[in-house]
């Protein structure tokens, strides 16, 4: 009975792991395909599709756009989120809970609706479709996240550091940048990287708000029109690799610090 249970448990776990990894394995395996269809039989290994992708100007400029967009929009989101979190945590403002709810509100709305709303307003205001427009959208989706993460980490024990600094004559701005920022660094770092991964991966807003210069997910979407194609496998595997590195960085730098 006991061994039967053990076999059942292992089989179940293996089956789920298999299900979870199946598409990733197929994606990466057939990115190494030598012939031009990413379907069995496997004819590789060959790096020709990676070469094709890396020398593809459209894809590489989309990759560059995505990195810049993710970096800048996350920086803006973290800055605004941190300042607001600090303001709400350290000062008594009238209607504070209402304003905090307002800042976190976009978390409850789907990206499709956020993108559509911005598209309508930008159309009216004459703002052209561009990376800047998409960047504004990415700040909208990441600001509430950064705010919520940093605000939740603002414990009372940090107030003591700040009081001490003030007693020693530091100005408010000095307290902010020389005491609060370093103390809250793990939360700031985590929210920045989380924003990066969300922006890096985001499709619908970028799809609606960009035109000629676009991001990597949108460019991959355009590739899909040509059906199954090992080029898509290659660029997809590269994107997966980048995301894994970002996730591992987050795990190593942030989680290790909090556990200490």
């Amino acid at each position: 009975m006991k061994t039967a249970g053990k076999i059942l448990v292992s089989a179940y776990a293996l089956a789920i792991y298999g299900f979870i990894f199946l598409p990733v394995i197929v994606l990466v395996l057939f990115s190494l395909q030598a012939s031009s269809f990413p379907i069995p039989p496997f004819t590789g290994p060959s790096l020709r599709w990676y070469e094709a992708v890396l020398s593809d100007r459209r894809l590489m400029s989309a990759l560059f756009n995505s990195v810049v967009l993710a970096g800048l929009s996350s920086a803006v989101a973290v800055t605004l989120g941190f300042l607001a979190a600090w303001g709400f945590a350290r000062y008594h403002l009238p209607r504070s809970s209402l304003m905090r709810a307002l800042i976190t509100l976009p978390l409850t709305v789907s990206y499709l609706i956020i993108g559509m709303g911005l598209l309508i307003v930008f159309n009216w205001a004459g703002v052209p479709k561009s990376l800047l427009a998409a960047g504004i959208g990415h700040v909208v989706i990441n600001l509430p996240l950064c705010f919520a993460i940093i605000y939740s980490q603002m414990g009372d024990n940090q107030v003591n550091f700040e009081r001490a600094a003030r007693d020693l004559g530091a100005s408010e701005w000095k307290v902010l940048f020389l005491v609060s920022v370093p103390v809250l660094w793990p939360a700031i770092f985590a929210s920045f990287f989380l924003s990066m991964t969300f922006s890096w991966d985001e499709f619908v807003i970028a799809f609606l708000l960009t035109r000629f210069d676009t991001t990597l997910p949108v460019e991959i979407w355009n590739l899909l029109r040509s059906g199954l194609n090992p080029r898509t496998n290659a660029i997809g595997s590269l994107v997966f690799g980048v995301s894994i590195v970002m996730a591992l960085l987050l795990e190593l730098v942030f989680l290790r610090r909090t556990r200490r």
Partner: peptide, 15 residues
């Protein structure tokens, strides 16, 4: 595999 891009994940299932 949570970290694969959204578009890529769906494409992989298509494969």
């Amino acid at each position: 595999p949570f970290w694969t891009s959204y578009v890529v994940r769906s494409y992989s299932w298509l494969l």
